[in-house]
Design a protein around this nucleic acid. Structure first.
Length: 482
RNA sequence: GGCCCCUUCGUCUAGCGGUCAGGACACCGGCCUCUCACGCCGGUAACAGGGGUUCGAGUCCCCUAGGGGUCACCA
């Protein structure tokens, strides 16, 4: 390929390729707000057949940890989001920032500042006291008497007047008075680059076409735009999406119980449900509530994003999760059940795979989460049921024990223990004793499950199997006769 | 406080000048029913307020109020 052609191709790619990045810092887990931002980036890229990039901003040496780095990747792995590029790490790109800083220094867009943090704070205090915007006053801008031996940081020279305007896809033109901005530090005294600087440099270097991020970054944007301008680089398109708020309309935090993505995994949510819920917070496609990943990719667009903040609603997430559980593959549910049982020290193999398929199929309409499902299935796998006292004293009575004994004998006669045959057995007892099903079913339910809640009694008995059913009935009868 | 963003049922939202303001979650009834669910049917509930523009504003403009965000040698 000739130089000219490769140049043209680069030009072409630069203008038409959609390249987005999600840039978390590894100072904490991937929380659901971050996940939603990641999702919007990812779906936008996929919709346009562009490139989704993961870039970890790990320049905070105090708070960044490898544990969080791994946890973030694990969260994406669980969500099933694969990144086309990355993870890049800012900590490994220091040369790039250094080079850019030198460029700005030699072009005069940046300068050395020897003011100490204390002095700068004083300036801010003073300005605040005078009712002005607290900012660095530019003391070192054009100073020639700086002590060459004094430690220094690098600041960006920001115009005193005029305004910095950029276009936001969601909000239109947004302008900031330059007088509101100060000469921000781009390289610290210790030589490390700062956030707003790295972001701009990376976005330039990675040829990011669209910056999609939370609108808590809106006021950072002019600072970054100024870096672009100083470097004579075209700015990407911006889309500042609304944030997720807690029920008290405050910024989502640990207090709201809605934190890390992996925690949702632990609580028994399906990644598809979480994705669906998060994407629908701020984005919609007509009246549709449930979307496959493919449907989101097909229909996603930034134009359909809502500008206002959304309040996180756990109930709706729960509903969606159940919807996904209701239509989940039985094999998958059995796997979840099995691992949940093992975690609780129970052996899934007590009942064969076919039976476990039956169990999850009975439980899927009764479970908002996989944890609910597992807990609802425990009685099938425990050796002895522990009767709930309240339920037992109400239903395991001498009156009901007579019925249960009859039923026990009927059940022991059945050769294939299917729900159909079990049902017949129940009816024989009901007819003989002239009682309604409820009179018999509820005591039996307590006897074999320990409580008053379970799938249909015929199905439950059938799934439990004859031997174990009879054993539990006997145990319950024993209790009554004590 | 300065600056910036936002404002349709309790919540998520549809609406892109003319709609009985639609859907979903939640809630409340009813049906189904062996418990719990599921399912089905029905119901309550919103354009923050005030000015304009227009024959006509949830939709366009302005003001007010409220909410949020942000003001570091953190990210």
């Amino acid at each position: 390929m000739s130089n000219l052609r490769s140049l043209l191709k680069d030009k072409f790619l630069m203008n038409t390729d959609i390249r987005v990045r999600f840039a978390p810092s590894n100072t904490g887990h991937l929380h659901i707000g971050g996940a939603r931002t990641a999702l919007f980036n990812w779906f936008f890229a996929k919709h346009h057949e562009g490139t989704a990039i993961l870039r970890v901003e790990d320049t905070d040496r105090q708070r960044s940890t490898e544990e969080f780095y791994d946890a973030i990747l694990e969260a994406f792995d669980w969500l099933g989001l694969e990144w086309d590029e990355g993870p890049y790490r800012q900590s490994q790109r220091m040369d790039l920032y250094q080079e850019a800083a030198n460029k700005l220094l030699s072009s005069g867009n940046a300068y050395r500042c020897t003011c100490t943090p204390d002095e700068v704070n004083e300036m801010r205090e003073r300005a605040r006291a005078e009712g002005k915007t607290p900012k660095y006053d530019g003391t070192c801008r054009d100073r020639y008497d700086k002590d060459p031996a004094a430690p220094f940081c690098l600041r960006l020279r920001v115009p005193d007047e005029g305004e910095t305007i950029f276009n936001d896809i969601l909000s239109g033109n947004i302008s900031f008075e330059n007088s509101q901005l100060d000469d921000m530090v781009i390289v610290r005294t210790d030589g490390t680059p700062t956030y707003n600087f790295c972001v701009a440099i990376d976005d330039i270097d990675m040829q990011i076409s669209h910056v999609i991020r939370g609108n808590d970054h809106l006021s950072n944007t002019p600072k970054q735009v100024l870096v672009y301008r100083a470097l004579n680089e075209p700015t990407p398109k911006f889309a500042h999406i609304s944030m997720i708020l807690g029920p008290d309309k405050k910024r989502l935090s640990k207090r709201h119980g809605a934190d890390s993505v992996l925690e949702y995994k632990e609580r028994g949510f399906l990644p598809e449900a979480l994705i669906n819920y998060l994407v629908r917070l701020g984005w919609s496609h007509g009246d549709q509530e449930i979307f496959t990943k493919e449907e989101i990719i097909e229909n996603f667009s930034l134009e359909n994003l809502n500008r206002s903040a959304a309040i996180f609603n756990p109930e709706k997430l729960l509903w969606l999760n159940q919807e996904y559980i209701k239509s989940a593959d039985s094999g998958f549910l059995v796997e979840s059940l099995d691992s949940g049982l093992k975690d609780r020290g129970l052996s899934p193999d007590q009942l064969n795979h076919r039976t476990r398929m039956g169990i999850v199929d009975e439980l899927r309409t009764r479970s908002s989460t996989l944890v609910d499902m597992i807990e609802g299935a425990l009685f099938f796998f425990e050796d002895e049921v522990e009767w709930d006292e309240k339920a037992a004293s109400k239903f395991l009575t001498p009156q009901s024990s007579r019925l249960m004994l009859k039923l026990r004998n009927e059940l022991s006669e059945i050769d294939t223990f299917t729900s159909k045959h079990i049902k017949s057995a129940f009816h024989r007892v009901m007819d003989e004793e002239a009682v309604k099903l409820g009179k018999l079913a509820q005591p039996v339910r307590v006897a074999i499950t320990g409580g008053t809640i379970s799938p249909g009694i015929f199905e439950t008995l059938s799934l439990l199997g004859r031997d174990r059913s009879l054993h539990r009935l006997d145990a319950a009868l024993g209790r009554v006769n004590q």
